[in-house]
Every structure is written in C-alpha cells, then in structure tokens.
Simulated assay, not measured.
Amino acid sequence: MTRTARTVHPIEEESYRRLRARVGTAHLPPLTRAVVERVIHSSADLAYAGDLVCDEASLAAAHAALHAGAPVVADVEMVAAGITARRAVCRLRDAVAAPGLTRSAAAVRLAYEEVGDGAVWVVGCAPTALTELIALGAAPALVVGLPVGFVGAAESKAALRASGLPAVSNVSEKGGSAVAAAVLNALLYAPPPTGTHPAATAGP
C-alpha cells in the first residue's frame, strides 16, 4: 500500500508556520514531530507539546504496518470520521452493554474478534475501551490512547503506558476524537523516516 498523497491547502501551510514559530519541534525525530504537530494543529493547544508521550520506534513500526495495510480500529464513529484516508472499523453500533461491561468495552471485544492482532487502535472517547483492550491481551501494531474526561481517562492512559504496548498517549485528562484521529492521520500522511535519528520520547 502506497503512502496517502494529499494536497496541502495554503491555510494549513500558514497554520503550521505559525505553530512552529510558537513551539519548538525541530529537535524531535520525524514521526514524533509529525504526530505532535498534527495534534497541536487539530486542537490549537500548544500544551500538547509537553503532554503527549510518543516513542519513535513504536511510531516507525506502526507507520510500516499501516502502509502495509494493517487494519485500523476506532472506538467511536467520531474518531472513524476524523480518519480521512483510511476506513476504520468501529463496532460501537453493534455492541450491547452488560453487567460489568460498558458498551464501549463490548465494542472493543467485537472489533478484536474481527481484526485480531496487528491492528492500529485509535481510542479518543471512552476510557473503558482502552482498559478493555489492555485486558484482552491483544498484540496491536499501535494503540493511540487519547480518551478524554475527568473519570478514568488519565488513569486508563497511565495503564496503557504501564502495559508495555506500543502506544501514543498523553498524561492529562484531555484528549478526544479529533486529536486521536490526528495521530493516525499524521502517520498516514508522513513519509517513511530516512536515515537514523536518536530514539526519543516526547512528553513527560
């Protein structure tokens, strides 16, 4: 599968110019920089430069997997709609809550049955979707874990980082569908990294 080609609008070019004038990203390795900048661009929130946690090696592996055709799974339709260059699997409409199992968690189980290991998961809404994915013992290519909220969001992202799964997350309670989709779009649009850059982690 070839890299997604796109035409960049002049307004987007100017937005990135202003973004880079206000926050330093030039020191970041290429895929980490692409992710951090697109999240900031999508949210107009410069604080993400210090809040996101990215690992370049994990991003490189996910980039290769995506461009080899790895499936993409979204926790909610809003995330799926924001992924502009790839159809994402979302099973929320088919899911049914049960005692001790939220509808979002049930949707993760259905999606995992469909795609199996090796997928890229994009969670931007429900902390329980993220905790269920961790509990399943899945082996994803990457988990974009950016659920938003004051109940369980920061804790689920901390659990993701502690799980050892390849991931992009953030430390605070903020997140959401737009920023989660932005991470995936950044990987779809980015060219393959060339040369060697010191492995780096962005964020705390």
Rank of each mutant, 00 (worst) to 15 (best):
A68C: 04
E14Q: 13
A178V: 15
E12Y: 10
P127Q: 15
N185S: 11
T2P: 01
D117V: 07
C54I: 08
V108N: 10
Y189H: 12
A180N: 01
L133S: 07
A111Y: 11
L184F: 12
A49K: 11
L142P: 00
L52N: 10
A111Q: 13
E14C: 03
S15T: 00
L19N: 12
A98E: 15
L31Q: 03
K157I: 05
P71I: 04
V122I: 14
V73M: 02
V115F: 05
D117T: 12
T2D: 09
N170E: 07
S43F: 06
P166A: 00
A162Y: 07
E132M: 06
G24D: 15
P29T: 08
C90N: 14
P198I: 03
I40M: 11
D117F: 07
A26G: 10
A5V: 13
R6F: 09
G176P: 14
R33V: 01
M1F: 01
A81R: 13
L19R: 02
S172R: 11
H27C: 06
G175R: 04
A47G: 15
L59S: 07
E155T: 06
L92E: 04
R20G: 01
A60V: 07
G195M: 01
E14S: 08
P29F: 02
A65R: 06
S156R: 09
V79E: 05
L188N: 08
H27E: 06
P191A: 13
A74Q: 01
V53R: 08
D75V: 08
V179Y: 05
A81K: 12
N185E: 15
P166I: 02
P127S: 14
I40E: 04
I11L: 11
L28V: 04
V144K: 02
A61S: 00
M1Q: 11
K157Y: 03
A153C: 01
A97E: 15
L188M: 12
D117L: 14
I40Y: 11
T4Q: 11
E14K: 03
A153F: 02
A139P: 02
G50M: 09
R6S: 09
V148G: 01
A34Y: 11
S42M: 14
R86Q: 14
N185V: 05
P193R: 00
A88N: 05
A105P: 05
E132F: 03
P204Y: 00
R3E: 15
V120L: 02
A60K: 08
S163D: 12
R86K: 09
A135H: 12
A105R: 00
E173D: 13
L19A: 00
V8P: 04
R38M: 01
H67C: 06
V168I: 15
T25I: 08
L66V: 03
E37T: 07
E113K: 06
V89D: 00
E13G: 02
P147S: 03
L188S: 07
A97C: 05
P127D: 13
D75K: 14
T196K: 03
E56Q: 15
C125Y: 07
S43H: 10
